[in-house]
Each structure stands twice: as structure tokens, then as C-alpha cells.
Design a protein around this nucleic acid. Structure first.
Lengths: 216, 216, 216, 216
DNA sequence: AATGAATGAGGCTTCATTCAT
DNA sequence: CATGAATGAAGCCTCATTCAT
């Protein structure tokens, strides 16, 4: 699942254990961060939930900030990969957009705790000071935005999307998607996934809330 | 104690001064909260910006949490009033929705700092633990949601909106609106208001991103 | 006694209290630092000895390092002044040197705790990393060294001192003085001052340990 | 237990390796201690510099304090031996003192890192709390002091030294020597040894800084 | 009402020491 | 013997809150 980036070297038992412990800590961190938010999360709680001592956390992460950052980075890796696949799988721009929409919903259901965290702390975007500090993460997100914008532009040229400013299309897309996800995160955390509802949300993005279509 | 909403009694000079001081403190709090977020904002900074001593803050607000809450409540008062007007001003459900959309944009431009704060700390909704504690605020928000839902339902019955679950309509509406506002808050805080863009956003909500409308 | 540098403004009661508290804290810090050394001294101990809470220390000093530094600076002010007087009071270079010698002994007896601290932490010189960081202090010490060297040079030209490298004269002078002081700090901290002994030490510096003088 | 001074038994390879490892650790400890001082030196740094794991350090030394102590003891052994030789090599008290003086300079040049450590942490004497705890070391130093005192007394009786309190002679001797060494440790750590300067320093101790000798 | 110095609980972080492999 | 991951006590520092003036 979590293939270590790429170069597969035969890891020693020690190294494998170490990697596992790191994962456990990230898991615990995610859980605590998403419960209380970054500021209120206590390193001791994270340690406890990971079933390690506080000091051990610091063997893996230099500081609370770093821990948070690495958590985001790790998750971002996963997401990026799946989103790239989703984009490539679509033929037309509309298909690509549709794939992105549903892949992000998939990701939400697979990483609920993480999304709650994202929503809480980042309000979905990466424009928070804590995160802007990280070149890597910011650049990566920028890249994603540009990709999306390019897709929308292509879609406009192809006559699939209306001739509105791409960043507006993008804003609407993100808004519909994020707000839906955010709501899912709150209201009844145990509610099951509802494909019809998801389809409705995409419909709302693609064809709007009104019946009588305005020609343009 | 601090009645300042409607019942008009002739306020003494003392009372008027007191009310003014309270306003100055709330203003300062908003400014500091929106700059650093709730956790990192320091009471001393707020006091300094309000040009009062820390102790004085505590004469008006029992705690940092309370200060935050009252700030939200005060602003909520203003917003509620203007939104109620907007709703009443619209004849049809669609008109009402349209009015709400643009009134909220008006409010955003009139209360930018507050919106930044809302976006930062509340991710736009009021589902944060800190706020859920407050009966008043939560109830008020609930009431607004119900109103909106009722409008959407009416719109569906009237054939103005598509027959999708009202909460989906609502989610799309909120998403498009909030995400647009959130973006405005980040990217270039000095950029001027752009009516065309706003119209585009509403168009996207009402008629979607795609050219070829699906009949339903 | 502790005239606030120079410009005398009428201090308010608040300000006078504040200054007094600062002094108390410095006093306590000196005491604790000189007992345990910088590293082992705990801010809590200092606070306790000053009869304040820890937090209060930090209203006056930004950090443990700063506290230490300001302590040194404050004392250095006093010493500098008295040494300058001593130097100016001497007519010939030898007299100046003699005055410095005994003034430093006076200072030792007036500020025993501080000297213990100096000896412990600084080995008498200011070449410790913690202190080299401070421009002010280092520069000030440098100035003193140059002054001394100039005096020795003058003394050599005047035929009062032997024609040895001034820095050697200086090293011998400092060595005899410091080591004597260091010893006093250890052995029986309650032993009274002994003028005869002090005279003997100066004699040893000026005319050496041997009876038969070598001509040079 | 760890007899390694004189009684020669044929050591097994194991024992020889062990002894070598111990030496490497002491070497590393000296290096790290002299760089950062005792408190700031970290066991992990020492281990790393010795190219062993932390745990291994603890097989050889019960604690950081012990490690420090044994380091001092080991070095003290060497110094003691050479100083004894120096003392015995001198015929007259003055010769003995002279030998001690220059032997200690030899030792300084042979064990610079150690002297830096001594100067930093011990201010040259052994009156530091950390060390006073050690009977052995303190007693040994005491013995050296007594020896020196006896030499000075003998010198006084022999008419080689002036009739001043022996502890004053001793204080001047130690002061001149130590301060010179301390200076060498700071100023330009790469400066070469300067015999003329050394001779000047001894001259200063023996015949003083002033030209005109006071008869006594 | 206003002030702001004082308080002290609580969080982050470090590092000597242990122990299972 | 060697290893180095794990431990957790302890120190520095922050800041919401109080209270005497």
C-alpha cells in the first residue's frame, strides 16, 4: 500500500519497525489533531494515543510543527497519486473533472480523519501560515491548481464548459465539493456513503440549481 | 445587563461611554483574532490594540472564550438583520436566494476582517466545538438553515429549482458562495470588488458549469 | 547608590517599585547562579529566592540567558566606574596598577557572590561563548585590557616596569590577582579580610618570589 | 576493579581491546566536554565521536558524572607522574619550582584539549562541587598542594624565596602559571609555543614586574 | 471603571539512562 | 559486549486570569 516512494531496498527488521512506529505516530497525530485542532492538540496526547512516550515522538519528528507538516506531506503523497491517476483516466476535460470530483470523494471516505483535520485547520486550502512555510507542500498545491485551471480552459475551448473565467469555474467546483465534504464531516459521522447524493452534487456543479437553463 | 439591541432607554453618558468602549474592544479583538486565529491571539495584544489595559477587558468580558463568543454574536446580529431584509425583499424563492447570495457578498465586503476570522476559525460553518457550546448562536444558525431549506423547498415546488434534495441545493449554494469568499480573503487582500465575477459565480450556482444542459 | 545611568527623571511609584523588583530578581539570580553555576541554576529557584513567581521573572528578562547577561552588565557598570576612578587616582603607572589591584580586591569583598559567579562561570575572563555574544560586554572588557596594556607600556617607558612584553606583565598581574581572589572564594568563605596578605600578594607581583634579584 | 596503572598481568586480547575502547571513549569525552563544557555535552555526542553506541558508554562508565570523573582521574595520573619526576629532578627548591612550572607548560602543550576543559569547568582548581565529591581526586590534589607548600617553605629556609606566607607564594605561582595557560587556550588556539614568553612568565613570578627591587 | 504587575498551571522540548535484541 | 530505540522526569517559557491600587 504505502510503497516507500520508489527505490525498494531490502529494509532490515529495525528499519521496518521504525517505519511502522512512524506510521503509528502519524496515525495518532492525525487522530488527535483532527479532534482538537493543531493548537489544542498536546504532544502528550499524541504520544499516549500512539502508545509511546513523549520523548519517542521527538526521535521521529523534530517538533510539533514538523510532525504536523510531515503528516500533511505523507497524506498529500497518497492523494496526489490518486488524483493524478484520476486525471489521466479521463479523456475529455469534463471526464477529468468528473473523475477528480469522485476521486476526492473516494479519498474523503478513505481518509475521513484526515479530511476533518484539513477542513478544521486549513479550511480546505493550503493558505494557512503554518503551511505556506513549506515550499514543497505549497508548490505541490500550486501545481494541482494549475492543472485544474488548464483542464477547465481546455474544457471551455472544447465547448464542454461555459465561457466563464477559469478561476470562477474552479472556485465553484472546489466550493461545491468542499462544502459537501465538510458537511459530511460534521453531521452524523457514522452516516453511510450515498452515491445518489454525490451524483446530485456533481449535477449541481455541472448543470446548476435552476431548472430553466439560461442560454449564453 | 448589556442590553444594546433594541429596547430604547435613554442611556446615560456613562452607559454610552461604556458601550463605546465595548465596541472598541470587540473591534480590536476581531482584528487580532483574524490576524492570528483564536488560539494564538493574546489577550494582551487585544487590549493593546483597543488601547485599554488587560484588566479592563475582563470587566467587559468574562474570559477569552466569552469575548470571542460575544464578538460572533454581535456580528451575527448585524448579519441576521440584513439577511432577513434580503430574504423578505425577494418575491420568488429564486429571488430570495439571489438576494441572500449578493447580500452575503455585501456583508463580506463590509466586514472583511470578520469574514477572514470566520473562515480561519470556523471554516465558514458554526460547527466548531468552541461555538457549539453556545445555545444562542447555534440555534440562530439552525434557524437560518431551516429558512434556507424552506426557500429551496418552495423553489422546487414552484418549479424554479430542480427536484434535488434541498440540503444538496443548500450545500451547493453555500459551497459556491463560501469558497468564493474564502478565495477573496487570501489572494490579494487589496483587490477591488468585481461585480462581473460575482455574477459569474451566481450563474455557476444557478445554471452550472456545463454548456449542454441536461434535461431532468 | 545605583544611580540609573544618568538622566534623572522623577520616577513614579510604580516605576520605582518596578526597579526595586528588578534589583531583587538580579540579586536572587546572582545568588543562585553563583551557587550552582549557570546551567544548573533553575529559573524556579531564582524566582523563589526573589519571592516572585516564575512568570514575573519573564516580565523583566526575556530569557534565562538574558537574565544572566543583564546581571553581568549591571555589575560590570559598577566595577567599571570604580576601576576608572582607581586608574585616574594614580599618578605614575605603578600607582595606577597598584590602585587597580587593591580596588579589585575592594570590589571582591563588596561583591563576593558575584565574584564567585564570575570565577565559576567565566574563569575570570569574558571569553566564554555565552558572553562573547554580547557586543557591549566584550567591547567593554576589551577596552579595559587596552587600558591596562597602555599603562604597562607607559610604565616600561618610565622605567618602572621591566622591559617584558606588556601582555606578559598583564598576564602575571591578572594571574596573581585572580588566583588570590579565587582562593578566597573557596577556602573558608567567612574568613576576614587580611591586609597583610593582600600586600604580600602585590609584593609578589611587583618584586617576585625570589630574594636574589636578577638584574636585567 | 579496573586496575590499569602498574601491576602488570598479561592481559588477554579481550582485555586489551576493552582497555582500548575505554581510552577511545575517554578521548571522545574529553573532546566533547572541552568543546561544550560538562553540562551542555551530550552523552550521545560523546558516543558518536567515540564511534560507539550510547549504551556501550554505560558499560564502561556508570553515569555521565562518573565518566567525567574517570577522565579527570586518568589525566591526573599522567600529570601526577610527570610532576613527581619534575620535582625529584630538581635539587634546590627553586629548581623544583622551576621544573614544576615548565613541566606544567609541557603538559599543557601535550594535553591542550584537557586543559581547556580544566579551565572551563574547573577554573583550574579542583574546588568544584562535582569534583569535591571524589575523595581520591581531592586527596590527591591536597597532596600536591602540601608538596608545593613544603617546597616553598624549604625555599624560604634556604634563602631562595622571600619570607612570605607559603600559601601566598603558592597563590602567586599558580596564578601566573594558570592565567598564562588560560590565555593560551583562548587567543589563537593555533599559535605556536613561545619559549621566550614562557621564560618571561617565570621571570615575572620569580623576580616580579618592577625594576627597582625592594630589599626586604 | 481602569490599570498592569503578579501569578502559576500547562505546554513543548531535551537528554541521561535503561533494556530488549 | 554492542546496539540504539524507548523512556519520562525536569527545565524553560507562555499567557489567561486575578487583584491591589
Amino acid at each position: 500500500m504505502h510503497s516507500n516512494t520508489s527505490k525498494s531496498k531490502p529494509l532490515s527488521r529495525r528499519e521496518r519497525e521504525s517505519a511502522r512506529h512512524r506510521q503509528e505516530m502519524l496515525e495518532a497525530a492525525q487522530s488527535v489533531f483532527s479532534e482538537h485542532g493543531f493548537e489544542k492538540a498536546r504532544m502528550e496526547d499524541i504520544a499516549q494515543r500512539a502508545e509511546f512516550a513523549v520523548g519517542t515522538l521527538y526521535r521521529f519528528f523534530a517538533s510539533k510543527d514538523q510532525l504536523y507538516l510531515e503528516l500533511l506531506r505523507d497524506k498529500a503523497d497518497v492523494m496526489e497519486e490518486r488524483l493524478d491517476e484520476a486525471i489521466n483516466a479521463g479523456k475529455t476535460p469534463l471526464e477529468k473533472v468528473r473523475n477528480i470530483f469522485f476521486t476526492r470523494l473516494d479519498l474523503f471516505w478513505d481518509h475521513k480523519a484526515f479530511f476533518r483535520l484539513m477542513v478544521q485547520e486549513t479550511e480546505g486550502s493550503l493558505h494557512k501560515p503554518r503551511l505556506c512555510g513549506d515550499e514543497n507542500l505549497a508548490a505541490r498545491y500550486e501545481r494541482f491548481l494549475e492543472q485544474l485551471e488548464a483542464i477547465f480552459e481546455a474544457g471551455i475551448r472544447a465547448g464542454e464548459f461555459r465561457a466563464l473565467p477559469p478561476h470562477c469555474l474552479f472556485a465553484a467546483f472546489e466550493g461545491v465539493l468542499r462544502n459537501y465534504v465538510a458537511r459530511l464531516g460534521y453531521l452524523d459521522p457514522d452516516a453511510p456513503r450515498d452515491p445518489a447524493e454525490e451524483e446530485a452534487m456533481f449535477e449541481l456543479f455541472s448543470h446548476g440549481a435552476c431548472l430553466a437553463p439560461k442560454s449564453q
